[in-house]
Design a protein around this nucleic acid. Sequence first.
DNA 1: CGTCTTTGACCTGCGC
DNA 2: GCGCAGGTCAAAGACG
Length: 301
Amino acid sequence: MEENKDKAPRAPFGPETTAEFAGDTSWPHGVDDSDGSYFYSGDRDRTILSEFGWNIDPVQMSWIGSDVDGLWMPVHSALTGSVEPVDTASVAATSSRSNNQSVSTSSSEDPPEKSTVFDEKPPPEIPSKSKKKEQKRIRQPRFAFMTKSDVDHLEDGYRWRKYGQKAVKNSPFPRSYYRCTNSKCMVKKRVERSSEDPTIVITTYEGQHCHHTIGFSRGGITSHESAFSSVHLVPTMSHIYYPIQRPIENNATLRSISQACQTQDEEAGGPNTVMLAEELTHPPMDEGLLGDIVPAGMRNR
DNA sequence: CGTCTTTGACCTGCGC
DNA sequence: GCGCAGGTCAAAGACG
């Protein structure tokens, strides 16, 4: 819970974003061996971004926070507002908890809280109990972002069904749980307000959509830029940092996810045009798990 | 009538 | 083992 503050990767904020995110600004560029994660910036941004299908100039992006199989990905500055540092006191607690309890699979392992460096592959042997858990819940890639908004549920082009709401400890604001209405899509989303700044909405997406947004189908929008504009994502970010853990493996994981989604599309007889890049372009930004997503520096403010 | 929200109960994992 | 907190389920009601 609270320990997470100390163990979580530190904010990869550069000079430009230091003020923006306040708090701990010591997240270094380069390697951070302490937790097996390392961060890239500069020229490698573009390379890595393109690796994951983001055709966006890193320099134009604001790092917010996300996690894909322990991978930190850039998240777009959100839909309607400016990106703010996440108040993650409560969220961190949430995430640390959920991180620990949800059994990771090859497709989702959070940054190890201990110094444990990621293994090349998922644990080959899983205790029966854990195995059971794994069957129950598989961690999906997560993306989180914050927006300043009066409305909790931001329009992102997808349809969501609310399936739960819980009071959050140490926060006067409840957390809402949403699921994508697409029966084949397992993407979930959590929405809550920052306890410190009620104007900030913290949204966390978990999983990746294996279908187009409802708003895209008619226009046949396929490009990233179009997608962004359709969901009002603002590609006016100032900087991007993203610590990456085992990028190769993670990339493979993403591809497998993408393939899985494509398979679903095929089975559904729908268009089989969902590409990894596209999925990542309008990412299922996931939050509640912000604890693992948001760097320590963003938590303690 | 179908879809969505609300909300209390239940389940699960973790810390003590 | 117990209590706490997060996450999910599902029945009931609201809404268009």
